[in-house]
């Protein structure tokens, strides 16, 4: 468990009054959140509570019905396509299913965002960044392998390397330990912490894996019934007597 000493840092993400519905299903109702520089914020909630919807709204993959989403000073729902692309260079996204491109090698997977965002154009500089990102996650040997040849944990690390290659200021993790065994899950949690220290990133981690939550969080937000139901550090929420909060920590 990491300590919460970021509350005085400037906010890099501010969400106010966020609402999102799918038909009659009101997933987010007046949701508020603030992420500070260098902070690891865990959003905790049951499956289907709207956690993934929340971070997809943050990166502009889903449009909110109402509310304000400010990321690094930009109002996301109002951004043009080009401005959103520029913002996405600064915000990494680790997908729940890793989302590695099956038809590409690990190298090509990592090169893809660099080439698409026109960040590095020479072959040498691209190669150097790819090797550096793979070294960060300890998987340099897999550079010419296909994603299908890798284990679940390795795929997660490669996906993380692809997220890191653009050197983002903020990383959004969508259930980073889902489907992994406890040992690999712990390794991924430690990697998240190592990355935060090395690159001073701010992160929102969507999870309901309590060991990951305990290890990685500076602060936790409980997303229940579409609202920010409770907030606090792991230790503070552990002592809560509220039944809806307590059920996660028992």
């Amino acid at each position: 468990m990491t300590s919460n000493n970021n509350s005085n840092e400037p906010a890099v993400i501010q969400i106010k009054g966020l609402k999102k519905s799918f038909g009659a299903n009101h997933v987010l109702r007046n949701f508020h959140l603030e992420l500070h520089q260098g902070e690891n914020l865990v959003v905790l909630g049951k499956s289907g509570s709207g956690k993934s919807v929340l971070i997809k709204c943050l990166i502009g993959l889903l449009a909110p019905d109402a509310g304000s989403i400010k990321v690094l000073g930009d109002e996301v729902p109002e951004l043009s396509h080009d401005a959103l692309d520029k913002l996405r260079v600064k915000v990494g996204f680790l997908f729940q299913s890793n989302a590695l491109y099956d038809s590409m090698t690990v190298r090509e997977n990592l090169e893809f965002p660099l080439r698409r965002h026109w960040i590095k154009t020479t072959k040498e500089s691209v190669n150097e960044l790819v090797r550096h990102a793979l070294t960060d996650v300890g998987l340099i040997d897999t550079i010419d392998k296909m994603p299908a040849e890798l284990s679940g944990g390795m795929r997660k690390r490669i996906a993380l390397a692809r997220t890191l290659i653009l050197k983002p200021n903020i990383i959004l993790y969508d259930e980073p330990t889902t489907g992994l065994d406890p040992i690999t899950s712990r390794e991924i949690s430690n990697l998240i912490l190592a990355i935060q220290k090395k690159y001073n990133t701010s992160s929102i981690i969507i999870s309901h894996d309590m060991s990951c939550v305990k290890l990685t969080s500076n602060r936790i937000i409980m997303l229940i019934d579409g609202i920010c139901y409770a907030t606090g550090t792991y230790a503070e929420l552990c002592q809560s007597t509220d039944i809806k909060v307590k059920q996660f920590f028992d």
Binding site: L61, Y101, P113
Partner: peptide, 19 residues
């Protein structure tokens, strides 16, 4: 191919990658 890319979020990942 596209169906499998859709359900494994590869299409979303592509969008996030500026494509």
């Amino acid at each position: 191919e596209l169906g499998s890319m859709k359900v494994t979020e590869q299409i979303d990942a592509m969008e996030v990658s500026g494509t």
